[in-house]
């Protein structure tokens, strides 16, 4: 089944776009859990949002309606709002500890 799918790739289908979006999403996830720099971590969540946005647009094209694109507009808005807050928080934290490492903030634990 899948081999058939690969061989038929002459024409680009929805699956290709979704696969790209899934790759971006997963790479963002990996980055989020492996990077220790808070700003890069947040960039990684933006990458995950980006993956979701591509999926939205691709599905929107597939279903021939505009809802997906409208959704992406709102994703952009929220991403901007989150980024503003996150960066303000990071600035605050950086002033405290003079480092961007997330690991210095690990006093609360069992």
């Amino acid at each position: 089944m899948m081999l058939a799918a690969i061989e038929n790739l002459g024409s680009i289908t929805l699956s290709h776009y979704i696969f790209t979006s899934a790759l971006l999403f997963v790479i963002g996830l990996i980055g989020f859990v492996t990077r220790r720099n808070m700003i890069v971590m947040f960039l990684c969540t933006e990458l995950m949002f980006q993956g979701a946005a591509i999926a939205m647009i691709a599905f929107g094209r597939f279903h021939l309606n505009a809802s997906g694109q409208v959704f992406v507009i709102f994703i952009l808005t929220v991403a901007a709002a989150e980024a503003a807050l996150a960066l303000a928080l990071v600035v605050l934290l950086y002033r405290r500890r003079e480092t961007l490492s997330a690991e210095v903030w690990s006093e609360l634990k069992e």
């Binding site: 989020f32 997330a102 690991e103 690990s106 634990k109």
Partner: peptide, 17 residues
Amino acid sequence: FQPLQNGILQSYAVSMA
């Protein structure tokens, strides 16, 4: 289960994801 709660952000993220 205590060691999972080690206070480090990335560990939580790994566990959650």
